[in-house]
Write a protein that binds this DNA or RNA. Structure first.
Length: 487
RNA sequence: GCGGGCAUAGCUCAGUGGUAGAGCAUCAGCUUCCCAAGCUGAGGGUCGCGGGUUCAAAUCCCGCUGUCCGCUCCA
């Protein structure tokens, strides 16, 4: 990593701690790897990101007209599924096998092999032999690697009570597809949205909150007919990319990248990642914020028939040595009957799956800015400012009395209480006025209001813009409407 | 999982065997000043955790944990 980028990331991490955005989990006990806590400002920022997403994708969606870029109108609803689900959910979905392996490490060549594939794997030192056959080989015993967090249902620790913390929220949507369809008066095409925690035992949690073991997802499963699915895939790629740019990720650091066919999961008909060039990554490298995937009928079919594997061009149920499904599905019919065409089919799925914590980190990195503004003597002074989009800024407005006497605190207090009815507003009368502006700049507060001597005469206050530091004098009676149109 | 670096106040760091420090930040007061670093004062650290060596350990040794970098692995 280049020095300059590392320095920038260090400054962001330091700011996040200093201002109460992000703390390491369980810090007073020495910390715990891969887990993070959000402090007073961090929780506001994170909630805003989730609220804006929910608003833009679900409650604010107009299902009576055709959105730009879409073929037809569509409906959106939400759910909130449990974190612990029936263990068979993960077996049928393929996660159990994918995330659960017996692995063998070679201490000599640092390679790792799946225990069941050693007879067919080449030794890294001598590809003509298999691991363990070369004299230099130094293999560990097969060890169980489980990327899913295991837990137990019921107080009794018993292997038959094993369950898992979900490694993704998506399956909670698929298993509720039938419930939503039969109760929410929706018909295809429609989407189900969900925000919630997910857990993965990452082998190497790294890069601040980017790869955490406990993280939060914002996922949509969009159900449509097979023949319309490609169009909806294109729609969602564009729709989701635009969402990030609309919240401030405007720079060349954001990109939409199509996966090559070889890179895609076996069930995917198309996948694109929305990626951000985080400062902690090497030059030219990008990290995933969201994956938009065309999953065909894989998910619903899996939960009908059982775990699917690819066989040439088709997906078929994986069988065990007795010819039965290796991991059975629910056996329930999850197909859809389309009244208009009088046809029955298993809906295809487009999945825009976003990481809340990763989005938040990208917004913070993008917003972090150092500039210089003149002090009271006209000498440029360095300033640190988080240029967060006003919709996600933790605090929307700060209210100050210029000095804490002559009745200014009382007037500022009235304004504070009035604005607080609508937004998260903070009040500060401590320290010099310049210092108070700087504090708010570091927190990303878009607007500051100052009550000064002239307020006492004509009722006007100054409204200061975070990005430009420009102040304008406005009537305090108009503040609510004025700020409303700028947020 | 392997190898290497790092761990001292909220933040950035100094302190290499002998009484735990600085700057910034925070708090109280003064100043009444529209863009940080004016004045006075205060609080805050079992020096990551555990063990060992020593009369004496932040400092030396061992283990653990966390973190960073590089491999490895990978949704």
């Amino acid at each position: 990593m280049p020095d300059g980028k590392k320095k920038k990331m260090d400054k962001i991490v330091s700011l996040c701690k200093r201002r109460g955005f992000i703390f390491q989990s369980s810090e007073i006990y020495g910390g715990i790897g891969g887990f993070w806590d959000y402090g007073p400002l961090g929780v506001e920022l994170k909630r805003n990101i989730k609220d804006v997403w929910w608003r833009d994708m679900v409650t604010g969606h107009d299902d009576t007209s055709t959105p730009v870029g879409a073929a037809t109108p569509y409906e959106m609803v939400g759910i909130d599924a449990s974190i612990v689900m029936h263990p068979q959910v993960w077996k049928a979905s393929g996660h159990y096998d994918l995330f659960h392996d017996m692995l063998v490490d070679c201490r000599t060549c640092k390679a790792r092999f799946r225990a069941d594939q050693i007879p067919t794997s080449p030794c890294s030192r001598k590809p003509s032999k298999h691991p363990g056959e070369h004299t230099d080989c130094d293999l560990t015993e097969p060890r169980e690697f489980n990327l899913m967090f295991k837990t137990f249902i019921g107080a009794l620790i018993d292997p038959t009570a094993e369950a898992y913390l979900r490694p993704e929220t998506a399956q909670g949507i698929f298993v509720n597809f039938k419930n939503v369809l039969s109760t929410a008066r929706v018909k295809l095409p429609f989407g189900i949205a969900q925000i919630g925690k997910a857990f993965r035992n990452e082998i190497t949690p790294r890069n601040y909150t980017f790869r955490s073991r406990e993280f939060e997802q914002m996922e949509i499963e969009f159900f449509c007919s097979p023949d319309s699915s490609q169009g909806w895939y294109d729609y969602w790629c564009a729709r989701r990319f635009t969402w990030y740019t609309s919240l401030g990720l405007k720079s060349e650091r954001l990109r939409l990248r199509d996966h090559a066919a070889s890179e895609r999961a076996h069930y995917s008909c198309g996948t694109a990642d929305i990626e951000y060039a985080f400062p902690f990554l090497a030059e030219g490298e990008f990290g995933e914020l969201e994956g938009v995937s065309h999953r065909g009928d894989f998910d619903l079919r899996s939960h009908m028939e059982g775990k699917l594997v690819r066989d040439g061009d088709i997906l078929k149920v994986e069988l065990d040595e007795h010819g039965r499904a290796s991991h059975a599905g629910s056996g329930k019919d999850l197909s859809y009957f389309d009244d208009a065409t009088q046809t029955k089919f298993i809906p295809h799925v487009i999945e825009p799956s976003a990481g809340v914590d990763r989005a938040m980190l990208a917004f913070l990195c993008e917003a972090y800015t150092e500039d210089a503004i003149p002090d009271d003597k006209g000498v440029p002074q360095e300033r640190v400012v988080l240029k967060l989009h006003p919709r996600i800024a933790p605090v929307k407005v700060a209210v100050f009395p210029l000095i804490k006497k002559d009745g200014m605190p009382e007037i500022a207090g009235e304004i504070y209480r009035e604005l607080k009815l609508k937004w998260n507003v903070s009040y500060d009368q401590k320290g010099s006025i310049g210092r108070r502006y700087r504090r708010q700049d570091e927190s990303g507060t878009p607007f500051c209001i100052t009550v000064d001597h002239q307020t006492l005469i004509d009722g006007t206050v100054t409204l200061r813009d975070r990005n430009t530091t420009v102040q304008e004098r406005v009537n305090s009676a108009n503040l609510v409407s004025l700020i409303e149109e700028r947020l």
